[in-house]
Amino acid sequence: MITQEEVSLYIQNIPPAPSVLRQTLEYLRDGDLPKAAKCAEEDPALKLYLKTLINRPIYGFRNEVSDLNQIFSILGISTTQQILYSYLLSLLLPKQWSLFTLTDQNFYDLQASLGRKWEKILKHLGLHNRDTESAITLLPASIIVCDALFGAHAKEVAQLRSVKALDYNTILIRLSKRSLFDLCSEIALKWEMSPSIAKIVHAASGTDSQISGNLKLLAQWMHLLLFYELSQSAYVSAGLNEFIDFQIDFVQDIYESFMQVVDDETSR
């Protein structure tokens, strides 16, 4: 089915972050929003992405916001960084989803919903910073990678899964010795993301042993948030509920608090 060589080739073929985006992120890291906005202006696709995103109903603006300076000011440094990473991820989207019955719109909705809830969670945990906020943008990369690697093998996977309830991540580990989360870390490295982002997302697999403290806490909340979202009707229908193994014991002790934060978020 999938070989180690195929996996390596896939990662190798992922393009590096575009130079304009890298420069924009650089200015953001320095805290210089005006320069970052000016730099982002040079990439029309990025500009369009940001404009479309900020004018979605979820942000609640009555009049269209089109000036990047204004957009960056509204979002702030952390959220802008998160959105730039989301844009980067959107460049990886397949022309056509072949394993999951997803649309790009479904995927953007998932990204947006994860982002909003994650922000609430970070505030609740008091662990809000640029890297923790951006970590959530890397998480859906696992879905894109999964679709890309298994898309051509959907029939074989279905046969395998007809006799044993194996998730895609487990199948990948057994075939290539690398998990979807390992691949996310490799993508993060390629895109020069902060190592702490990759660490959080990797730990969110729920299978990393020897993690503790805040990293463990963030990983638990991210793992449960992912399954909260993947249990939504649209994503169950898309087949996403089965793509990784839900580590129920890993998240059991934060479940009550999670529901309070998420229910609170939902009711708003």
Binding site: V163, K164, F227, L230, N241, E242
Partner: peptide, 19 residues
């Protein structure tokens, strides 16, 4: 979702939240 079949027993394995 398709159930996994072992012998003559078929089992659905939903994950996460069920409402």
């Amino acid at each position: 979702m398709k159930p996994a079949v072992k012998g003559r027993v078929a089992v659905f394995h939903p994950q996460g939240f069920l409402d």
